[in-house]
Amino acid sequence: MANRSLFKKKLLPYWLILPTVIALIIFTLYPLISGLFYSFTDIKFIGAKANWVGLDNYIALIKGTVGSARFFAQSFWQTIEWTISVVGGQFILGLITALLLNRDFFGKSAFSILIMIPWTIPSVVMSLTWQWLYDPFYGLINFYLKKWGFIEKYVTWVGQPNSEIWPQVIVGIWRGVPFMTLMLLSGLKAIDKELYEAAKVDGANTLQQFIHITLPSLKTIIVINLMLTTMWWWNSFDIQKIMSPVNSLGYKASTLPILAWYESFQWKHLGKGAAISIISLLVLLVIMIDRVRQEMRSVKE
């Protein structure tokens, strides 16, 4: 399409992308590079002087000797655990929901709208609401778990320094199911129905159809989706921040973004906060590098 004669104009496209490119440089590339610079300095708080300290911040974090650095390794593994379980949970539930919604049945549009709701509410409201659901005295979740015999007495699920991360994982899954569902559903709708008819004629059962037709047809959309959701949830902040205890040092369920934020803005070690973020970015990059490379290749084609 882009090769057609009328679109061979030389300069217009460059003018059109110029504002975006300038904005990207000012608002993303420059902060990225200056953040990298600050991670090699001892800058403590806003307006303080930044002295070059080389790799000191990184070494301190990895050795785990000072301040919040003690909690770096813990947050690091927690981030991996958090991302895998949230994205995995969203994907499985989202795929099931999309498959269910891809059939014709009574009440389909009502279900579609209801299932979308977790996506529409502000993340702050969501986090507060789940905190109320997890309430240790009058919470809905404690009530039903006790009633159904899963717990003996009421549990304090979140908000304590030693709280586990998985109650928050459930919130993350809850949040992300609609987006996954909608994306996968749009992929399912694009699959040619005749493929299934042909498979039925050949005697393939539902499971075989799913494995040999549905999954391969969805491959692109699944890959892109998992890639983006992994990036987003790796860096997610709101749920963990709001559900964590205020000002708590060494919060057990914290992830790297939370640690970086506390380090920078609560404990006023901007340099170390930047170093945490840079390590977080590098690890994510390593996890993603294969996919990104393939993406680059497919873009070039």
Partner: peptide, 17 residues
């Protein structure tokens, strides 16, 4: 695509300064 990976905290730290 890559910009999606950059932690919000990193941008926030630099932007704050």
């Amino acid at each position: 695509l890559l910009v999606n990976m950059v932690p919000g905290t990193l941008i926030l730290i630099s932007m704050f300064i």
